[in-house]
Simulated assay, not measured.
Amino acid sequence: MAKLTPRRVLVVEDDYYIAADLAAALRTLGAEVVGPVPDRVAANRLLENEVVNAAVLDIKLGGDTVYPLATELQTRGIQFVFATGYGDTIIPAQFRGVPCFEKPMRPTDLARAVLSGPAASPGVDVNANLLLSRMPEEEFDRLRPHFTCVELRRGAAPFDAGDKLDHLLFPLSGVCSLSFGAGAPELSTALVGHEGMIGASLLMGVSRLPMRCTVQVDGEALSIAAEQFLPRLRSSPRAWTLLLRYQHVLHMQTAYALLSAGAASIEQRVARLLLMLADRVGDEISIIHDAMSTMLHVRRAGVTQALHILEGEGGVRARRGKITIRDRSRVEQAAGLGYGLVEAEYERLLGVSPRLPGIEPSMTKPSLRGMFQTGLPN
C-alpha cells in the first residue's frame, strides 16, 4: 500500500459525480477533503481560509481554466495533480512536470498520486531500480510524474494469481517472490528486487498475472498505473526492448528454478537462494527458515540441516531471523551451477550487474554451453 501521509486535499472539479467519487477515495485513504468546489473563485476562497497541503485540479472549469490557481499553488509550494478530459497536450510548459490523469480515470489512482507524491520526491532514489536507471532519460522523464512510492511489507501479496495487472511495480529495495497460485505447491520460481519489475507480462499483452507475488524482505517500490505506463512506453523502442530483455531473463530464472527443484540437492538449492537474496539485499539477510522452506517447497528441517552444513563449512552464519553470508566463495561452491547463469545473462543483455554495488561473484561466470555439457551437480 502506498505510504500515505494524512493531508488536507483541495478538490476542484465541476463534475458533481467525479468530485464525489474522488472525495470518497481520498477519505478512504485517510485524507481530509477541502471542498469539493466547482470553480476557481470558490477554490481561492478556501485556499485563503483553510489549511491546504495538496490539491486535485480539473483543468477546464466551465469556460474558465484552473491555471491561475495552479500558479498560486506552485508559488506556495503546495503539491497538486491535474485531471482532464483533453489530454496533457493542453498543459502550459510551466506545468509539464505535474502529474496529469486523463478522464475517465480511477479515483483511487488519482487519490494515491496526490497523497503519495511523485517518485522524484526528496529521499526517493529512482535510480535504485536498475531497469529505470537504464531507461533512456527522455522516456523516463515522461513517466516520472506518474510514479508513486509504495511500501513492501514482508508477507504481503501485492498480486495474487489471476489478479488483473492494473499497475506495475519497480522495487527499489526488498525482495518479492513469484510462485504458483492457490491449489498448487508454493514453489518460488523467481525473485524480483531492485534489478527488476513486477508486471512485465503486460508487455506481451497479458493483463492478468499468472503467479502469486509475495514480499519476502521488506522494502519499497515505485508503482505506476498500466494505463499511464504502456502508451508512453510504446513510443520508445529502446525502453520497450530493455524491458522485454528483462522478461526474457525472468523466464530463464523461472525455468532454472524448476530445473534446480528437480535435479539439485536441498543444500545446493538453499545456497542458490541465499546468493540470490544477497544479490538483492546484501550479505545480511533477514529471513526465517519457514519462509525459505515455503519458497523452496521443502520441509523446514531440510532447510535447517542445509544451513548447518553451510555454517560448518564457514560459508554462512545463521541466527534467529537472520542469515549472514561470511564466505561467498564457499556458498557459490555449494550452489554449483545452480547459481550464476541467469545473473550472467542479465548482465550480458542489460549491460549492468544485477547485484548490489560491492557484491561480486567469486567464481568464473558459467555459460549455457557449460551447463548443458556438465549438468547440475548431484
Rank of each mutant, 00 (worst) to 15 (best):
S260L: 15
H251V: 02
G262P: 01
A255V: 06
Q253D: 15
Y256R: 14
L259G: 03
A255C: 09
L243C: 09
Q247Y: 07
T241M: 05
H248I: 00
S265C: 11
R238N: 12
A263D: 12
Y246C: 05
S265L: 12
H248Y: 11
H251A: 07
A239I: 01
R238W: 07
R238Y: 06
H248T: 01
W240P: 00
Q253G: 09
L244F: 04
T241A: 07
W240M: 03
A261I: 02
L259P: 01
P237C: 08
L242C: 11
W240Q: 02
T254Y: 11
H248V: 00
L250S: 04
L258T: 10
A239E: 00
S236T: 08
S260D: 11
H248C: 02
L259K: 07
L242I: 04
T241W: 02
A264K: 08
G262T: 04
S265Y: 07
W240F: 14
M252V: 03
A257G: 07
Y246A: 06
V249L: 12
A264G: 07
S260I: 02
A239C: 02
S260K: 12
W240G: 00
Q247F: 04
L258I: 07
L259M: 14
A255Y: 12
S260H: 08
H251P: 02
S265I: 09
A261R: 13
A255N: 13
A263G: 03
Q253E: 15
Y256H: 15
S236G: 08
L250I: 00
T241G: 02
R238C: 05
T254F: 11
A255I: 05
T254M: 15
P237H: 10
A264S: 15
H248L: 01
L243Q: 10
A261K: 13
A239Y: 01
T241C: 03
S265K: 11
S236F: 08
V249I: 15
W240T: 00
Q247E: 13
Y246R: 04
R245V: 00
L242E: 09
S236M: 07
Y256D: 12
L242M: 10
M252A: 07
A261P: 02
A239R: 00
R238D: 14
L250H: 05
Y256T: 06
G262I: 02
T254K: 15
A255W: 07
S236H: 07
S260F: 06
S236A: 14
A261Y: 14
A261H: 14
L244I: 01
L244M: 13
G262N: 11
A239M: 01
A257C: 09
W240A: 00
L250P: 01
V249N: 14
S236L: 08
L259Q: 12
T241V: 04
R238A: 15
W240S: 01
W240D: 02
A239K: 00
S265N: 11
M252K: 14
L250W: 01
A257L: 04
A261M: 08
R245S: 05
